[in-house]
């Protein structure tokens, strides 16, 4: 990812706790509420907005709480089968993302999941996107 293509949802640089995985671009309100993705419209907890909301990197690691392999999908992308996961990030928010690889028969509830940046095709060239993958080295 070049700086010109800086993605609003993630950065290649990891956090102190999980330095080897890309971080998600979350937000933190002065009230303490942590959320994803970053926005300045207003805090869902207290209603403060604008400068009260600051970007905070969220570690690209969490626990798998749910997953679903999609068999039927009306749009051409993503191609079926693909898997959607719900992951409780170590840093708090629950996020949903696509799984890499698209199907993983070994996936189990409670697995440690980590973020990775992959290139997906677009009309011209490719674009980077964030996927979650089972941490091959991590336990359950």
């Amino acid at each position: 990812m070049t700086s010109a293509e800086r993605h609003p949802l993630f950065v290649a640089t990891g956090t102190e706790q999980v330095p080897d995985r890309p971080a998600l671009v979350g937000g933190r309100c002065t009230c303490g509420h942590v959320f994803f993705p970053m926005q300045t419209y207003g805090c869902e907890k207290c209603g403060r907005y604008g400068g009260h909301l600051e970007t905070t990197p969220l570690a690209g690691r969490g626990r798998l709480i749910a997953f679903a392999q999609v068999h039927l999908h009306a749009r051409p992308e993503p191609k079926v089968p693909f898997t959607v996961v719900a992951v409780a990030l170590d840093d708090g928010p629950i996020i949903r993302a696509l799984l890499n690889p698209p199907v993983d028969p070994e996936l189990r509830h409670g697995d440690v999941m980590v973020a990775e940046i992959v290139s997906v095709p677009r009309e011209v060239g490719t674009r980077p996107t964030l996927r979650l993958t089972r941490n091959a080295t991590g336990g359950r």
Binding site: V84, A86, L98, H109
Partner: peptide, 25 residues
């Protein structure tokens, strides 16, 4: 005006399939 990691990949059936996965577990 905000992006998401999943775009249009999560239709209602998948939202509930995820809840089903969690409930079943």
């Amino acid at each position: 005006g905000l992006q998401s990691l999943t775009g249009s990949a999560i239709v209602p059936a998948t939202h509930y399939a995820l809840l089903m996965s969690e409930y079943a577990q």
